[in-house]
Design a protein around this nucleic acid. Structure first.
Lengths: 147, 147
DNA sequence: TAAATACTTGCAAGTAAGTTGCATTTATGA
DNA sequence: TCATAAATGCAACTTACTTGCAAGTATTTA
């Protein structure tokens, strides 16, 4: 990946997490850094196998990064798991049901809902929530209307 | 399954959807009718194989019922897909991260959020959303504190 | 109510996503 | 620069789900 400074940042992140700065991990972090939406492990693998990274290594690294809280898992309608950098701030996603395109949506107005749910559920704490929207993106809507 | 009247209702549902009222489908619908939370196909299979229903048949029936809008798919942190009756009204779920217990949470305060997302996203329509909460249920919290 | 037929099912085998064990390699602290 | 614990790659495995096809069964129609 392009820039040395970013790679230096990635090294620091790994060091802090007591993970060794291997080329597989640095490359993985660079991909996340340059992508503003959740990526599937399959897509990550397509990018990383060019660099000689094995699928198993990828899965293990994804797991380590998730455990450290550097990336987070996102589940969509899909069978596969998606991941994104965790420090991009709290936000949600919109998925196009036609082409599968995923967009990040900054912010979240869920806190009020959250509190109510906590009260009604009998749960002692809600640690996390996931909110995904599904719809038709504008370009799919256009190509649909042309048919 | 116990009651004949319910089975009659299930038959009507299938007939309306132009699906034949086979024993596998009736049993499947009865399970959904008696369960107030999403069930995984794996769990459905455990219940149905006693009746001699094959895994493939189950998957195919789940697919048919989903296409007809009788049941809907729910994706949690899990790799497997969960399903629930679609006519139970719009609601969401809380999943215990410790024991995996799933609870239905009636209602949804998401419409305001929804509208804002639609405006910002550039999507022409949002057809669906999924909102799942994850936390620790009260009984897990108690057994945790005892350790 | 029995035969025709189109819908369903079960079995075998296949695919996709993710996991485990183990021998080899490599990043890093001494 | 060496020792060593961590990380990797390969092969094989598991789990969740899918496909093809022959055999069985719910409905239609006569």
């Amino acid at each position: 990946m392009q820039c040395i400074e970013h790679s230096t940042q990635s090294k620091a992140v790994l060091q802090e997490g007591k993970l060794r700065a291997t080329s597989a991990r640095l490359a993985l972090l660079e991909i996340f850094r340059h992508t503003q939406k959740p990526i599937s492990v399959g897509d990550l693998f397509v990018m990383l196998k060019k660099l000689g990274v094995d699928k198993v290594t990828l899965y293990r690294n994804v797991e380590s990064l998730e455990k450290l809280g550097i990336i987070r898992q996102v589940r969509l309608k899909d069978r596969q798991a998606y991941y994104e950098l965790a420090n991009h701030g709290h936000h949600h996603h919109v998925v196009c049901t036609s082409c599968g395109k995923i967009k990040d949506m900054s912010g979240c107005g869920i806190n009020i809902v959250n509190k109510r749910f906590l009260k009604v559920s009998g749960f002692t704490k809600i640690t996390e929530h996931s909110l995904e929207f599904f719809g038709v993106c504008s370009s799919c809507a256009i190509s649909e209307s042309k048919k």
